[in-house]
Amino acid sequence: MRGLGWKWGGGILAIVIALVVFVVPFVFIVFTAGKTQAEAAALEFSWPTEWVFFENIATVLQTRDFLLVRAFLNSAILTTVAVAVMVVLGAMVGYVLQRRRSRWNPLVNTLVLAGLIIPPAVVPTIWVLQGLGLFKTLVGLIAVHVAFGLSFCILLFRAFVATIPRELDEAAIIDGAGPVKLFFRVVFPLLRSVIVTVIVVQAVFVFNDFTYALYFLPGDENATVQLTTFNYISQSVSSFNLLFADVLLITIPPLIMYIFFQRQIVAGMTSGAVKG
C-alpha cells in the first residue's frame, strides 16, 4: 500500500535528515561544551573522552569577575521591563484602534505598518538618546525596544480585540465603569491568551537581540548576554569549550520558552508575524 510506505518510509528518511541537519549542530554544542580545552580544539563531533561540563560552565560564569552573570541579570531586566511596557501600551492602542472609529485611525494604521517595515535610522536614534541622556543606559535600550516592538503588539491586539463582544463593554459602562476601569478591569483580563502570545514572542526577540544592544548599549560593564557572547569570540579563540559553554547558556532561555509555550509561539509567529 502506497500510503503506508509513504507514512513510514518518508517519515523515517525525514527523521534521519532532520537529525543530521538540525539536531547534530546542537549536539555538537553540548559535546564541545563538555570537553577539555585541548580536546575541544580538534573541532571534532565526538563524545568527550572526559566530561568537564560543569567545570566549563562554572569557569565561563566566573570569567572576568562574573561578567556573564551580570549580563544575564541585565538581559533579564531588559526583557521583563521592555515586554511589560510593550504589552500594556500596545494593548491600549490596539483596543481603541479596533473599538472606535476616529479620524486618527488611518494615521495610526499607517504608522504601525511603517514601524514593521522601515529599518530604524540608528545614528539619529543615538543622537536623540544622547539628547535625552539615555544613550548607553539600560533604560535607553528598554525604550528603544518598546518603540520598535510596539507595531507588532498593536497588530496582534487589534485583531484579538475584535473577537471580544461589545456587549461586555456596554454592560460595564452601564455599571458605571469609566474608560480606564473598563479597559484595565474588563477588557485587559479577557486578552489573556493573546497577551501570553505577545509576551513569549517578544521576550524571545528582545532576549536574542544583538543589533540594538550593539548600537545603543555598547561596552562591557552593563552589556546584555548576546553582546558579551559576541565579545567572547575575540577573547577565547583557543578555548572552544568555554565559548560553546557560553553559547549553550544563552540558548537555554529560549529553549525553556519553547518547551512551555510552543503553541503560543507558533500562533504568534504565523499569525501577525511580520518579524524579520
Partner: peptide, 24 residues
C-alpha cells in the same frame, strides 16, 4: 468610552525614538 488619549503613551515612545530619528 474609548478615549483617544490611549494612543498617547505608546505614541510618545514611537514618535521620539522611531519617527523623529527617521525624519532626522
Amino acid at each position: 468610552p474609548y478615549p483617544t488619549w490611549f494612543f498617547i503613551p505608546a505614541g510618545v515612545f514611537y514618535v521620539v525614538l522611531f519617527l523623529v530619528p527617521t525624519v532626522a
